[in-house]
Write a protein that binds this DNA or RNA. Structure first.
Length: 563
RNA sequence: CGGGGCGUGGCGCAGCCCGGUAGCGCGUCUGCUUUGGGAGCAGAAAGUCGGAGGUUCGAAUCCUCUCGCCCCGACCA
């Protein structure tokens, strides 16, 4: 392709409202444009990147026996009502009515329609297993679209669904996806971790997430170098370092107007890990007291697994439930359910005295938390020890680029997706669901591959493999050689972009760096006098001078190696 | 949904506090010169200041409402 005919609107400055590096660079380099909050236009270069990613996904999905289909984006309400999600999902679903007044929605995922299909057309154990997938649009009315292409309201997703007779079959389908996904991300050239994840609202028994390390990410994972344990901090188990308690006797201390952990630690001149944080939450079954160490954060999702949906109690609710003003709650007494983090089993702590203006020192688990249930409810933090092997955990910020779930019969049961087994018994199909966000792969690649001059694409998903830059298009000889190389390399099947614009060298070089094509051949008059051209690698800036007649062979070798 | 910020030629911004009908840089177009890291000079086109209402002789500037966008948090199938 000739640059002069390609629409690549590059910008010298990033739009002021872009924050994430990938957002800034993809806009500046002319890959995307924003239409509205969370709605993006893919320009020719962006489109090519997406197509390359999708093609890699397609190849790997086909390799595990996946069959590509396409579900409608516009869905009737009925299937969603049957699984209960019509009501369970709130504002995040776009809803509308057709001309006949029937309720419709825009699909934010496709468990319902895929399972509907299975219910209609899978009858016998002989039909199973099946893996169906699509690369298609999802629409979600996100509360807060952000970070450019990372969280949008409309996006392409590769979603696949497996249908098996039993758990053993599901295990196989799950394993196939687990491996296929690793290949996909590896081929795309990005760094990633596979971590255990929360099954969340999707239900099911097992889930993994694929996470690309990047400061622009919205999630955090805990990683153990020792045993390889890797989990989303939402469920990561960890053992905090034990605190060194002083030899406290149980006694009350006046702490007037000291309510927060910060105020109390400063007043008592102790570190936060010597306090017990008592947090009252309101669950469907009444108030629950959550107890964590002062330096820990309560993890709401971990707590939710134990007590269900809940919210922090209001100040007046604290007073009503415990008879204590907020800020002075202690773990002792209170005839309500108490859940304490296991770290509190050891040591002596300071805590609220259940009396306004007072705290107590010398609280111990055996004496004062006898009626509490112990369960890991803290957010795993850096420096905590791995719950499996004891080595120190590392916490990394990541972008979620894919996830896989064992669904079981969560969707097949309500939608009556059943089959007849060998004995003629009707059974529910056992399902799995698996998602990949191609746009997030692209964004993660940019987040991980860039420098002060622009994007550095991994070769496999770069919009073009090679850029030919004749420095001066008015120089006949340069152009003849450029044209010759361009034709020859295209002939060999490489994706070549030729910068045939009548621009100054600086402009061309700046644009070249910005859009991040892995290899570049620079054809200039000076080098040509010695019969040489330059091959420059984007990722490291290394320049190699090569003879004109050897160029095609040399660059072809490099490109083949990468393909 | 809570908190914060911002809407002025295509992009980045100034002007607003102390009302007098719009300015700078980049980009775009034309010409000449230049030509290996976002060129120089000369000239030109392009905005009615997010929208509506109000105050005023007069509003980008003040007031009210409203829409949009970004960031933090909540939420995230």
């Amino acid at each position: 392709m000739r640059y002069s005919r390609l629409f690549i609107p590059t910008l010298k400055e990033a739009p002021a409202d872009a924050e994430a590096i990938s957002h800034k660079l993809m806009v500046r380099a002319g890959f995307v444009r924003q239409l509205a909050a969370g709605l993006y236009i893919y320009l020719p270069l962006g489109q090519r990147v997406m197509q390359k990613i999708n093609e890699i996904i397609r190849e790997e999905m086909n390799a595990i026996g996946g069959q590509e289909v396409t579900m409608p984006v516009l869905n009737p309400a009925e299937v969603w009502q049957q699984t209960g999600r019509w009501d369970a999902i709130g504002d995040e679903m776009f809803r509308l009515k057709d001309r006949g007044g029937r309720d419709m929605c825009l699909a934010m995922t496709h468990e319902e329609t895929m399972t509907w299909l299975a219910a209609h057309d899978l009858r016998s154990y002989r039909d199973l297993p099946q893996i169906w997938y699509q690369i298609q649009t999802k629409v979600r009315d996100e509360a807060r679209p952000k970070s450019g292409i990372l969280r949008t309201r409309e996006f392409t997703m590769k979603d696949s669904y497996s249908f098996d007779c039993d758990e053993a079959g599901l295990d196989k389908s799950y394993q196939l996806h687990l491996e296929a996904y690793k290949k996909i991300y590896s081929r795309c050239g990005i760094k990633f971790f596979v971590v255990q994840s929360d099954t969340g609202m999707m239900g099911g028994s097992m889930a993994h997430e694929y996470m690309a390390p990047s400061p622009a990410g919205e999630d955090e994972v805990a990683l153990c170098e020792g045993c390889g344990y890797a989990a989303n901090v939402e469920l990561a188990l960890s053992v905090p370092k034990a605190s060194k308690s002083p030899d406290w006797n149980f006694e009350e201390v006046a702490t007037p107007e000291r309510r927060t952990i910060d105020e109390v630690t400063r007043f008592l001149k102790v570190t936060p890990d010597l306090l017990i944080k008592s947090i009252l939450v309101m669950s469907d079954n009444g108030p629950v007291l959550a107890l964590v160490r002062g330096d820990q954060m309560l993890h709401e999702k971990k707590l939710a697994k134990l007590i269900g949906p809940h919210r922090p109690a209001q100040k007046d609710e604290v007073k009503a439930a415990l008879g204590v003003p907020a800020g002075f709650i202690g773990p002792m007494g209170h005839a309500i359910r108490k859940i304490a983090d296991p770290v509190l089993k050891q040591g002596l702590y300071a805590a609220g005295a259940n009396k306004e203006g007072y705290h107590v020192k010398g609280v111990s688990a055996e004496k004062h938390l006898a009626d509490a249930e112990f369960s890991d409810i803290h957010v795993a933090g850096a420096g905590d020890a791995c719950a499996q092997c004891g080595k120190e955990l590392r916490i990394e910020r990541v972008i979620e680029i894919g996830n896989i779930f064992k669904l079981g019969t969560k969707y097949s049961a309500p939608l009556k997706a059943n089959y007849l087994d060998e004995n003629g018994n009707e059974k529910a199909i056992v399902m799995g669901s698996y998602g990949i966000g191609p746009a997030r792969i692209a964004a993660a690649a940019v987040e991980q591959g860039n420098d002060e001059n622009g994007i550095i694409w991994p070769p496999a998903i770069a919009p073009y493999q090679l850029l030919i830059v004749p420095v001066n298009v008015k120089d006949r000889k340069s152009m003849d050689i450029a044209e010759e190389m361009y034709a020859a390399l295209e002939e060999k099947g490489f994706e070549v972009l030729m910068d045939d614009r009548d621009e100054r060298a600086g402009v061309k070089f700046k644009d070249a760096d910005l859009i991040g094509i892995p290899w570049r051949i620079v054809i200039g008059e000076k080098n040509l006098k010695e019969g040489m051209v330059e091959i420059k690698e984007r990722r490291n800036g290394v320049v190699e001078k090569v003879k004109v007649e050897e160029t095609i062979e040399k660059i072809a070798k490099k490109l083949v190696l990468e393909a």
